[in-house]
Design a protein around this nucleic acid. Structure first.
Length: 498
DNA sequence: AAAAAAC
């Protein structure tokens, strides 16, 4: 199926699509649209960025238009639930594009903003309401809204809603929407509770799966820096940001406090940065996101509030400043880059006490993340407590044999000489991002298995800063020399972790 | 263990 028309969409929708530059349906759209048009309940296993919103939105709009009714005051005809306010705004923005030339109204209901405007909006009549669960139930309790005319219920990012403890709210809401509705459930993963939820609230659903685990991460170059402590994370981060003056960098922190602190530091040393997390007001969050989206600021520090679904086209780098406690979150975080067919780079920092987390992540994805630093050859660096190398027979790749576009990834020889000399102490003295020695921070993308690469010309001059050679920059991930590279450096003083 | 989400 190569165009939207063949999927059964009407002229009105097709016009809106071409006006907004939608040309070819994505796989999930191709699979889901005809099913939804046929009235089927649907379970979609997919991440955002795959075109999910259009996959459920277009056929839903089509059917809402076809039945020719208008929304009664305080009654909605379709309800879309999502876990975060930002995601709700994003979904609604997309749907609004689709309904622009139709009489349909899209409404937004989220917490953190004035409830009165939402009440007024609902009183005027909303056909498609996009909401977070808490405020929605609040409005229902206030009788500002009833769901008794609801014909469509969409649960987006259902697994995250589960993680965030929305399961009870979801059940409550699902019971408020009449049984003769059509229900569409989207989830990146399918944990038992979501499967149960689907069994309870969906009728004979058709399953659509477009992103097998790991697949979405396939276009993303991934590296991990082993560092002894947090200071070095910051130093390496700053250098890396300096090396990437054009793209947008999204940095994930484990805590709200940590995100704020890091943002303030980066801002203080000259990177225009903003932060987004749950301690910020909704207007601050929205402002930060907009400035980042518009490229006004290039650096956004976030908690997992921004881990999922957020679609910002210009994000070239995702940093896991802290590794997430839940391995799933890593996949979602890095999925903020390499969207819409673009490339992306994901750089993680790993302190000794985060190694457990890294291993969980690698296990989940079925890959081994290329080592960007450490003080020993990669295999040993991966096992800093000296239990010998791991990775025996472990393959890079997505573990599912689905890589189609790359040469096989090579495992690095265990005793490769170290090349990435980097005077960590020098760097620590830098207060501001500098450009003058950028070349030193890069290595060629491939083929330096002889232990030398052109990015290390100054290595000899720097080596004496260490008592011994720094670590090899293991770059096992690619054989494609044209890919952009990020800096890879050793840790301060080459300290071994553990 | 932290994050998000209702006031």
């Amino acid at each position: 199926m190569s165009n939207f028309k063949e999927l059964g969409l009407s002229q009105q929708i097709l016009a809106a699509l071409s006006a907004n530059g939608f040309e070819k349906p994505t796989p999930i759209q191709t699979q889901a649209i005809p099913q939804v048009l046929n009235g089927r309940d649907l379970i979609g296993l997919a991440q955002t960025g795959t075109g999910k919103t259009a996959a459920f939105g277009l056929p839903m709009i089509e059917k809402l238009l076809a039945d020719g009714r208008r929304a009664d005051p305080r009654n909605i005809r379709a309800l879309v639930l999502a876990p975060t306010r930002e995601l709700v705004n994003q979904i609604a923005a997309n749907l609004k594009l689709f309904v622009k030339k139709t009489p349909l109204k899209v409404g937004i209901v989220v917490g953190g903003v004035s409830i009165n405007k939402q009440t007024e909006q609902l009183a005027r009549g909303v056909d498609i309401l996009v909401a977070t669960p808490g405020r929605l139930l609040d409005l229902v309790a206030r009788k500002a809204l009833t769901l008794t005319q609801g014909r469509y219920l969409v649960l987006d990012e259902a697994d995250q809603m589960l993680d965030l403890g929305f399961i009870h709210d979801l059940r409550k809401i699902a019971k408020l929407v009449p049984k003769n509705r059509q229900t569409l459930l989207f989830s990146a993963t399918m944990p038992k509770q979501i499967a149960e939820l689907a069994g309870e609230y969906l009728t004979d659903p058709v399953k659509v799966e477009v992103t097998p685990p790991g697949k979405a991460a396939d276009k993303i170059e991934q590296y991990v820096h082993f560092v002894p402590g947090k200071d070095l994370k910051t130093q390496i981060l700053k250098q890396s940001l300096t090396n990437n003056p054009d793209g947008l960098s999204l940095i994930f922190s484990r805590t709200k406090h940590g995100a704020e602190k890091l943002m303030k530091h980066l801002d203080h040393v000259g990177f225009k940065a903003a932060s987004i997390h749950g301690n910020k007001s909704q207007s601050q969050r929205e402002r930060a996101l907009k400035a980042f989206r518009d490229g006004e600021i290039r650096v956004l520090v976030a908690t997992d509030v921004a881990a999922r679904g957020i679609d910002i086209p210009g994000v070239t780098h995702v940093y896991n400043y802290d590794l997430p406690e839940v391995p799933d979150a890593y996949v979602h975080r890095i999925g903020r880059t390499a969207r819409n067919g673009r490339d992306g780079i994901a750089i993680a920092f790993c302190t000794p006490d985060e190694i457990r987390l890294l291993r969980d992540i690698e296990k989940l994805m079925g890959i081994e993340i290329a080592v960007a630093s450490g003080d020993a050859p990669a295999d040993q660096a991966r096992s800093p407590r000296g239990h010998g190398g791991r990775g025996n027979g472990q393959n890079r790749g997505n573990g599912g044999g689905q890589r189609q576009d790359k040469a096989p990834r090579r495992k690095r020889p265990a005793r490769e000489p170290a090349v990435t000399g980097f005077a960590g102490d020098e760097l620590l003295r830098e207060d501001r991002p500098q450009n003058h020695d950028r070349r030193d921070q890069r290595v060629t993308g491939h083929g330096h298995h002889d232990g030398r690469s052109e990015g290390n010309r100054n290595h000899e001059a720097r080596k004496h800063h260490h008592g011994r050679p720094g670590p090899q920059d293991s770059h096992r991930g690619r054989s494609d020399g044209n890919r952009r590279q990020d800096m890879r450096r050793t840790g301060k003083g080459g300290g071994r972790q553990g």
